[in-house]
């Protein structure tokens, strides 16, 4: 009887945990390397910086695809003027200096490499128009004993579009030295005239005495791309995959514009 029970138990355990694996016998999704580009254009900058790389196919590839930068051609054109970008070996970035773009300029990006060609377009966005008010700071202590500084601001968006895409970024300073960054989600959709109270965190040890807040009005491409990017790291086996925003025809990546203002505040604890 005992033997019988053991046999059944072993069988059941084997059945319950039995699973077999094999190479999938199905059509794999298209698997060719693609050009990846990234550029964020601001009218406040006199340079264009462009990152170019190649994607690495996952299946049936035997290593990463190395890009020969010398064979890459990158051009940003606007109003009939072409800006040829050159490669900076130190920053591993294509760039062009002494450029000046204005609000409303339409820009086109063309990048080619060994017969592959990608294109994208964007329009220089207007500057952020807002009312900004520092409401003060407070310390929040959670039930598990963790404390952090929370700095509250009221911001009203006065840009003219029905939907405006804002990004708020900040640095904390102690005795005029950089101390820490604000890493949390910092992207907001504002309706015309909408006011929000925003909490900025990241002052972990409550030692910062001043902060800089970068207020950005960005285009929709910039906004959607960064929204995806903020979630892109794996958070567990059950999370929905991040489908990265892409506005590059023939390849992957982003070509977008932003317009930034800086506000500085002393922290009142």
């Amino acid at each position: 009887m005992k033997t019988y029970i053991y046999i059944i138990a072993t069988f059941l355990i084997l059945v319950l945990i039995s699973s077999c694996e094999k190479n999938a016998d199905i059509d794999i999704p298209d698997n060719e390397p693609q050009l990846v580009v990234a550029a964020f254009i601001s009218p406040q900058d006199d340079t264009i910086s462009l990152k170019v790389s190649m994607s690495h196919p996952i299946y049936y590839s035997s290593g990463s695809v190395q890009l020969n930068y010398d064979e890459v051609t990158a051009v940003v054109s606007s109003g009939g003027i072409n800006h040829n970008l050159t490669f900076d070996n130190q920053r591993l970035t294509f760039f062009s200096d002494k450029v000046q773009f204005n609000t409303g300029d339409n820009l086109k990006l063309d990048v080619s490499y060994r017969g592959e060609k990608v294109t994208s377009e964007c329009t220089i966005i207007t500057e952020p128009v807002y009312d900004f008010e520092y409401l003060g700071s407070e310390t929040k202590t959670y039930k598990d004993g963790y404390s952090e500084g929370i700095h509250k601001f009221k911001i009203t968006c006065n840009n003219g579009n029905d939907i405006n895409y804002y990004r708020l970024n900040s640095n904390f300073y102690m005795h005029n030295y950089w101390y820490s960054n604000y890493y949390e989600s910092d992207l907001y959709e504002f309706a015309k005239g909408e006011t929000r109270t925003i909490e900025i965190r990241g002052d972990h040890d409550l030692q910062a005495d001043s902060m800089r807040v970068y207020i950005i009005n960005c285009d929709e491409h910039y906004y959607l791309y960064h929204k995806n990017l903020g979630n892109s790291y794996e958070k567990g086996p059950f999370t929905e995959p991040i489908i990265m925003y892409n506005n590059v025809e023939g390849g992957l990546g982003i070509f977008s514009s932003y317009n930034m203002q800086l506000e500085k505040y002393e922290i009142n604890k």
Binding site: Q34, A38, F40, S53, M54, H56, I58, H226, L229
Partner: peptide, 10 residues
């Protein structure tokens, strides 16, 4: 996932 790549953020 078809491929991996380095996505650059601003």
């Amino acid at each position: 996932a078809k491929s991996t790549y380095t996505a650059y953020g601003h």
